[in-house]
Amino acid sequence: MDNILISGAASGIGAATARLFHQRGWKVGLLDVNAEALARLSAELGNAWFVALDVTDRAAVNEALADFCGKHQGQLRLLFNCAGVLRFGKFEEISLDEHMRILNINVLGLLQLTYLAFGYLKATANAQVINMGSASGLYGTPDMASYSASKFAVRGLTEALDLEWERHGIRVGDLMPPFVRTPMVSSQTFEPPALRRLGVNLAAEDIAEAVWQQSQGAAVHRPISLQFSLLYWLGQITPAPLTRWMMALINRP
């Protein structure tokens, strides 16, 4: 039976993905810092395996991987790197500690979990890594600079590993949605012009369905929503100045 390990599983996209894959017969593993929410979700999913941890804690991640994969003959069919944090605001008005926290979790935590999972992925037929990217990984987005930078890093890592790990039979891809209706977005106190202009038209369940589609396909990048898909593909064929002009238009006050 296929298994999936999800970081950031306690709420939002991670929780919606856990529910969907559980409904479709997969064995689900849950990781998050929120122990109480994880326990509730685990009970909802028939006592699904879970561990409360910080993805930047190497020892805890290593131990959790060994425990979960050990229950599945040392194999891991799908790793979904969904853990992440976000902060809207003017770059200079956000503390340096908060900028570092965003990069530590969104980039280094993702990199660490992927690195430590390699042996289990390599031992599994049709193994796959799906990273939570973003539309803000296409072009730098004002008022979310460090988050945007983190998603550029995720995009680069995804592209590199998809080529590098092909020899091991491991596919690596990412999802690139615009704004999604999750607690991470709704809890923000600052509204960027891009959010006001584009709106929040996706729910966590929409992204969970995209995770499912990605698990059945081999796309490196999966732009989500017609609106962003058009922008993404336009960005692949138009000169950089035009892409910058479009982003400036979207983000004007």
Results as ranks from 00 to 15, higher is better:
residue 8 G to N: 04
residue 211 V to W: 01
residue 64 A to E: 07
residue 159 E to I: 00
residue 160 A to G: 02
residue 33 V to W: 10
residue 62 N to T: 14
residue 49 W to H: 13
residue 34 N to G: 04
residue 37 A to Y: 08
residue 226 L to N: 09
residue 172 V to P: 08
residue 145 A to Q: 07
residue 29 G to Y: 12
residue 133 G to N: 02
residue 30 L to W: 06
residue 75 Q to A: 12
residue 4 I to N: 05
residue 32 D to P: 08
residue 188 Q to V: 02
residue 5 L to A: 07
residue 158 T to A: 06
residue 126 N to S: 08
residue 19 R to I: 12
residue 117 A to I: 09
residue 81 N to A: 02
residue 73 Q to M: 01
residue 233 W to N: 12
residue 135 A to T: 08
residue 202 L to K: 01
residue 8 G to W: 07
residue 34 N to V: 03
residue 122 K to C: 01
residue 164 E to A: 10
residue 199 G to D: 09
residue 1 M to E: 06
residue 62 N to Y: 03
residue 63 E to G: 04
residue 183 P to R: 11
residue 116 L to F: 13
residue 144 M to A: 07
residue 164 E to L: 10
residue 168 H to P: 00
residue 213 Q to M: 10
residue 232 Y to E: 05
residue 59 A to M: 01
residue 169 G to F: 04
residue 22 H to Y: 07
residue 69 C to L: 11
residue 236 Q to E: 15
residue 176 M to D: 09
residue 66 A to V: 11
residue 125 A to Q: 15
residue 179 F to K: 05
residue 44 E to Q: 12
residue 3 N to M: 00
residue 207 I to W: 07
residue 12 G to L: 05
residue 3 N to E: 06
residue 208 A to W: 14
residue 144 M to S: 02
residue 217 G to Q: 14
residue 224 I to G: 14
residue 161 L to C: 07
residue 144 M to Y: 03
residue 78 L to T: 01
residue 20 L to Q: 12
residue 151 K to Q: 08
residue 1 M to P: 08
residue 103 L to W: 14
residue 230 L to A: 15
residue 240 A to I: 15
residue 227 Q to T: 05
residue 187 S to G: 04
residue 58 R to W: 00
residue 37 A to M: 11
residue 27 K to G: 08
